[in-house]
Amino acid sequence: MNEAPVRKIIHVDMDAFYASVEQRDDPQLRGKPLAVGGMHRGVVAAASYEARKFGVRSAMPSVTAKRCCPNLIFVKPRFDAYREVSNQIRAIFHDYTPHVEPLSLDEAYLDVTEDLKGIGIATKIAEEIRARIRAETGLTASAGVSYNKFLAKLASDQNKPDGLCVVTPAKGEAFVAKLPVKRFHGVGPKTAEKMAALGIETGADLREKSLEWLARHFGSSGPYYHDLARGICHRQVKADRPYKSVSAEDTFFEDLRDSADLLGELDRIGRHVWQRIEKKGLAGRTVNLKVKYQDFRIVTRARSLDRPVSGCDEFLEIGTGLLRSLLPPPKGIRLLGLGLSNLGTESEAPVPIPLPLPL
């Protein structure tokens, strides 16, 4: 008799977020093809819509992006600026609901089944949020509104940029039927390739397959795919998801071989990571090192303690020790990364053990 209410879920996705922040802050970049990332090395972190018209995409090697768009302008990422804007946007979200699940700096799920302002209509809430984001940050956001997370995320991508798409319970199954399965959450490239080989290209194709057939071909994921084809998703919006790790990495403009240079870069990266760790009030027991050589071979090293790392000095000391085990490098190094995992909060950690000062 007491059925649970139909959920009201909004997925908000900022439009070309990093690139849009750069164009907002520098009027000379507006209307021009722009890529956030290194021009000579690395990959594109984000591309403006002007650049996307030439086929430039995030995660594309910078050299390839330049070939696609000879007039492409590269700018160095400013993650502190992006994080500041992201915090502004999340503050707007929390004016409407405490149930906010950030996925990254530029997107989040909101459960507004019971909203704080008593508006009651998810579409109106989404419109109001988008208007406030534009007014308060000067940026545009797209939003998807539906009765579950799966459909809300699909919908937010439907009318980009600066768009809104609503999928009601009556239209959910038909909406899914028209879409390619490679867009579905949980269907990665390999699974999409396998589905294509089995004649499944769209949601409608997937719906034709029985639960037994899907279980036979996809094992434990079969029931999940069976639900998706019918617009069913039981995943809940989970606020304040715990961090699994905090890390940072940097790709260098030129391959580094000198040990002193590499140790200096690791110190810089590590101090940046520790600032984030302190800001989030986290503690962790495992230090992780990542090294990518000039031939793109990746080597990782890790060291775990039986207690949380006591502070920045110990974090850097352990990271330095891990890197020294690989020095001198057999070949040039193009990327270094350092991180902390096995995380908890500072309140869960014992009192930090002070390190002796160097003589």
Score class of each variant (00 low, 15 high):
Lys292Glu: 02
Asp255Lys: 03
Asp13Tyr: 09
Lys244Cys: 15
Leu338Pro: 03
Ala126Glu: 00
Leu29Glu: 01
Lys153Leu: 10
Leu29Gln: 02
Gly231Ser: 10
Glu317Arg: 07
Ala152Thr: 00
Pro27Cys: 10
Lys160Asn: 14
Ile89Asn: 03
Met14Gln: 14
Trp213Arg: 07
Ala239Asn: 04
Ala229Asn: 03
Glu128Tyr: 00
Ser48Thr: 06
Thr286Cys: 11
Asp227Ala: 15
Leu198His: 03
Ala196Glu: 04
Lys190Thr: 12
Asp261Cys: 15
Phe79Pro: 08
Ala47His: 07
Leu206Ala: 05
Glu107Lys: 05
Val287Ala: 04
Ala229Pro: 02
Asp250Lys: 07
Leu103Pro: 06
Phe175Asn: 06
Arg241Phe: 06
Asp95Cys: 15
Val166Thr: 12
Lys190Gly: 12
Gly144Leu: 15
Arg241Ser: 15
Gly163Ala: 09
Leu289Arg: 00
Val299Thr: 04
Gly163Lys: 05
Lys53Met: 11
Gln88Arg: 09
Gly219Ile: 09
Leu211Gln: 00
Ala248Glu: 10
Gly37Asp: 01
Glu136Ala: 14
Arg307Leu: 13
Glu128Met: 07
Val351Met: 09
Ala248Pro: 03
Thr286Asn: 08
Phe79Val: 05
Val6Arg: 03
Leu105Gln: 01
Arg207Gln: 09
Gly55Met: 06
Leu338Asn: 00
Arg241Tyr: 02
Thr113Leu: 13
Lys160Pro: 06
Pro161Leu: 09
Arg303Ile: 04
Glu114Gln: 10
Phe253Lys: 07
Lys8Phe: 09
Ile353Asn: 04
Glu101Cys: 13
Glu173Cys: 14
Asp106Ala: 14
Asn148Ile: 10
Leu355Glu: 06
Gly188Val: 05
Cys69Val: 04
Lys171Ser: 14
Trp213Asn: 05
Asp162Glu: 07
Val85Arg: 00
Ala131Thr: 06
Glu114His: 07
Thr251Asn: 02
Glu254Gly: 13
Pro5Trp: 06
Arg241Thr: 07
Ala35Glu: 01
Val21Ser: 11
Lys279Asp: 13
Gly186Val: 04
Gly203Tyr: 00
Leu266Met: 08
